[in-house]
Design a protein around this nucleic acid. Structure first.
Lengths: 233, 233
DNA sequence: GTGCCTTTGTGAAGGCATGCACAAAGTCGG
DNA sequence: CCGACTTTGTGCATGCCTTCACAAAGGCAC
């Protein structure tokens, strides 16, 4: 028996690596940029011309040093003694996040959640255009939702290729999710937002983000129980 | 990701206190427990009696060492050479998360998202009971959704107190969220799941978790843009 | 131009999470 | 009852993230 490293032990290392070759922005930072963007848009609406890291941090609910470090990854866009120009920073963050371009999104699965997503204003207002709604249920196909007609899931590949869809939202039941996932990847999609309560298995190079509504509630329940147990708060 | 401190409050640290007979389970672990639970339920349905950390980790999509370390925080529930008893582990994790008790949840805001949440099966099946649906729009009040009648938001305090609601889901427009938040806290609620795109300001001792659908899309767009820019993957 | 005041950008330290590697512990066939 | 085998639980090293603290930079008043 060898006590050296097994040469084949990198099966589980296939995870996406944040790797710093270019301007490698830390994942934690990327996840907060949308937060800053939202706060900035709020300030812009009120006509605020500039904002300090302290104030912006408060509006976004983070520590100001963290905010400054996050922004420093994008470049040096602040002015010492003054703060950040709101409009300019909005543009820079948007550009970094890729929101200055138009993204075509398809939603697969038009149940309650799919409908809610289709009608959700937060997408359209940020450069995401819903280019297709698809469902496997003939009962639902043909419905008009948010200005779009629901198409049959058979059309998935066609819709993706014809309309240049690059991001797919999976809002199907758990049982259909992996199959849909495989098909959209086969059709060339490499970014997936998954609402189905399953772990999707995907090849390298494909990004999957998962939103699980019940997990959040379970985490809350954990903390709520802690409080009730008489733990010193 | 969690109840963050307000930037101006970090002098008097009232942070989560790990002391007290220290069963202090790391936040990162708590966030994964629901994942393990789901994987275990899948195994239980197929009648699997025991599972190794390797297999369970694969089903949950995590590293097996991480899984073992996570579980070790709950206690020593595995058997060396064999693995974990599926049913027993389900029970232990459920208990730790507080899912063995019944949680009354109220959903405020019955738009598209609120309706989707009310109909979402993942809640009920995990010990969460929807005890109230409320909305400020008289047009919506009286609608029957998921077996419940929508009540007017004026009833918020009454509903919370009479029905023992301990977790509130805010699915209102951004403009109403803070007001709803203040009211439910005043009524004694200390756990809030917020879908409105605003940073809620709450006193210490109140847990807020936030789900923002558009943030996830923006993070995907960031990575998608990176790929398109010809970055080496 | 000078000096003061504000605020950024970042070096450094500490904390937390991750994943490897292995000893300890338990099973199982014979 | 024993020895081989499997798998857990964990010490440890590593790296990322957060936060503090401060020097450097720029604005502004005069």
């Amino acid at each position: 028996m060898s006590n050296r490293l097994h040469p084949l032990e990198f099966r589980h290392v296939t995870r996406r690596i944040p790797q710093a070759r270019d301007r490698g922005i830390p994942d934690a930072t990327v996840a907060r940029l949308p937060l800053y963007l939202r706060a900035l848009n709020g300030l812009a609406e009120r006509g605020t011309p500039t904002v300090s890291s302290e104030d912006l941090a408060a509006a976004a609910g983070v520590n100001s040093a963290k905010l400054r470090k996050d922004l420093s990854h994008l470049g040096s866009y602040g002015t010492r003694g003054v703060g950040y120009d709101v409009q300019y920073l909005i543009y820079q963050i948007s550009r970094e996040l890729g929101l200055t371009q138009d993204w075509a999104v398809a939603i697969v699965g038009v149940g309650n959640l799919g409908r809610a997503l289709a009608n959700y204003g937060g997408f359209v207002s940020r450069g995401f255009r819903i280019a297709g709604l698809l469902d496997g249920d003939p009962q639902v196909v043909g419905d008009r939702i948010a200005g779009l007609t629901v198409e049959h899931a058979d059309e998935l590949e066609t819709v993706i290729k014809r309309r240049g869809v690059s991001i797919v939202v999976i809002a199907t039941p758990a049982s259909a999710a992996q199959q849909v996932c495989d098909r959209v990847i086969e059709a060339g999609v490499t970014s997936i937002l998954n609402f189905a309560p399953v772990v999707l298995s995907v090849p390298d190079g494909v990004d999957v983000r998962k939103v699980d509504l019940s997990i959040e509630l379970q985490i809350l329940a954990f903390h709520e129980q802690r409080k009730a147990d008489g733990v010193v708060m």
